[in-house]
Design a protein around this nucleic acid. Structure first.
Lengths: 288, 288
DNA sequence: CCCACATGTAGTAACTTTACCCAAATGTAG
DNA sequence: CTACATTTGGGTAAAGTTACTACATGTGGG
């Protein structure tokens, strides 16, 4: 089952510095046009990189492949995963098509990292808490406010009392007034916003459950009951964080899906009824 | 460039019925363990399928590969794309790990569809309108409200007057009060909410620009100045729409990126200053 | 100046493909 | 309905590629 992403291309990139002259030539030839490399024979690649065939072969073995053909297959898989763009940062002179592609592919790559990083056990624990919750509150400030709002929308359909707050004062009040059985989900990219940490501690002091969707290892993560964490490196300093919110949304989707599934068949009908109640406000589907 | 998903495995599955006896034996052998097939030599695969080597070769050519090695590479890519999950819907008895993976992979697949479907020219047009805007308003109701809120957060940093509205009454008032140079971005998954269409028409009547992030071909799309459209099929009827909002967010990311880039270097410093102003509210990065 | 490492040459082994042939099935004419 | 022709499916074996191994040669560091 396990998908174990080799990310061969990334590995080649990383080890580029540690390779000797000829092998670096091979690496560069491959990175120059990875998908072409999958079509080359060992002789063709050797010629392109201007080295001998055994050098290519040694290079392949260096990346723990049994030989050139095996290496080519791993490379092909690595490409299919969308890896070629990963890490390629957006440059000021990119065309619209180029940076649009980069934004999309970077987002996809980050989602994939998140997929691999997320711990199913923690997810399951979080879902269990949410199902048993008397009341759910989503807290997110600044850039995470939309995520909290979205979460409220999704969980609203489960007929558990649910709210979101994007304002520290209200969050503090809710945390102070919480008790056993209340679940507070705190969404924060950095996990280093002082107030959020204090709020989490307040809630915990009142025996509420605190689920953190934040960076693992951050001060906020330290205090949460459960942490659903992802480290998506991005150029936070200058541009705005982009992928992180999308990952957070995806985590919310997973939690919502989990709650739906665990509630069983009867409950899925309830969801359908809510959907149906919205139909009246819409025009009929395109007829032509 | 073009990523053209072959989905070779799917194609083999589909054509299984139309193959003659021996070639079907080959197909079945491959489907039985696709990833093993990528490691086999033609002789090994022939033995496993209990046919001769040329038969395997003919089979490969039948799937428009130049030969067996080429076929193996396409097969490898097909496996790596995560194909097994794409389209596989979530089932009530999935484990947490399974459905979490499916949610993520479905989202990724939809983002990729969006990436290919988005028209760079329309994006460029939208970005131009946004740069020249006197005022930008994001409208989104229900599930699209969080997207509108997120957009406001992102565009707030550009020091253009920007607001979001999630309430039809306010939206109508803003549309009625708009004029040339105002840009209204309407976010709607279905593009069939009656009120939104009327609101769009009001805004257009006042010479405002209306950018629609919605389903192409929908009634709303018909009336917009520019449409940034994506058709992400999902199980809207029972579960809630998930991927669509994430795609919409990604589109917002692209627009924001475009505006940032087009504004040039000086402006990116301005963004950095805003970032810096937030530092004071945070704990320092992990020190250990 | 020598040793060790890096790299290339040439030959061999493995793998793939082509050319050819046989067998079975289907079609056709007597 | 039989007998011959034609097409289709599929295997054998040899030719052609491709990849690997063993060895030779060069080159930089001690």
């Amino acid at each position: 089952m396990s998908a174990k992403h080799d990310n061969l291309l990334e590995e080649i990139q990383n080890r580029l510095e540690n390779l000797n002259k000829s092998e670096r030539k091979v690496a560069e030839a491959i990175l120059r046009d990875p998908s072409a490399a999958t079509r080359y024979s060992i002789a063709a690649l050797a010629r392109t990189a201007d080295v001998s065939e055994p050098t290519v072969n040694r290079f392949c073995r260096g990346f723990s492949a049994s030989g050139f053909p095996d290496f080519k297959i791993r490379l092909a898989q690595s490409i299919a995963t969308g890896t070629p763009y990963v890490g390629q940062n957006i440059k000021p002179d990119d065309s619209v098509e180029e940076f649009a592609d980069k934004v999309m592919l970077t987002t996809m790559a980050n989602l994939d990292k998140a997929r691999q990083a997320l711990n199913p056990k923690d997810l399951a624990t979080a879902i269990d808490y949410l199902i048993q919750a008397k009341q759910i509150n989503f807290f997110g400030m600044g850039g995470s406010a939309p995520v909290a709002l979205d979460a409220q929308h999704k969980f609203f359909r489960f007929n558990i009392p649910v709210m979101h707050y994007d304002d520290a004062l209200m969050q503090r009040m809710v945390a102070a007034g919480s008790s056993t059985g209340d679940v507070i989900v705190i969404i924060s990219y950095t996990g280093r916003t002082k107030e959020m940490i204090e709020i989490a501690q307040d809630a915990l002091a009142n025996d509420a459950t605190v689920i953190g969707i934040t960076t693992p290892g951050s001060p906020l993560a330290e205090v949460c009951t459960v942490v659903l964490g992802v480290t998506a490196a991005e150029d936070t300093e200058v541009y705005m964080p982009m992928s992180s919110r999308i990952i957070h949304l995806a985590v919310i989707d997973i939690l919502a899906t989990g709650v739906t599934l665990k509630r069983g068949e009867g409950f899925r009908n309830h969801l359908k009824k809510i959907k149906d109640s919205l139909k009246a406000t819409r025009l009929p589907p395109a007829s032509s």
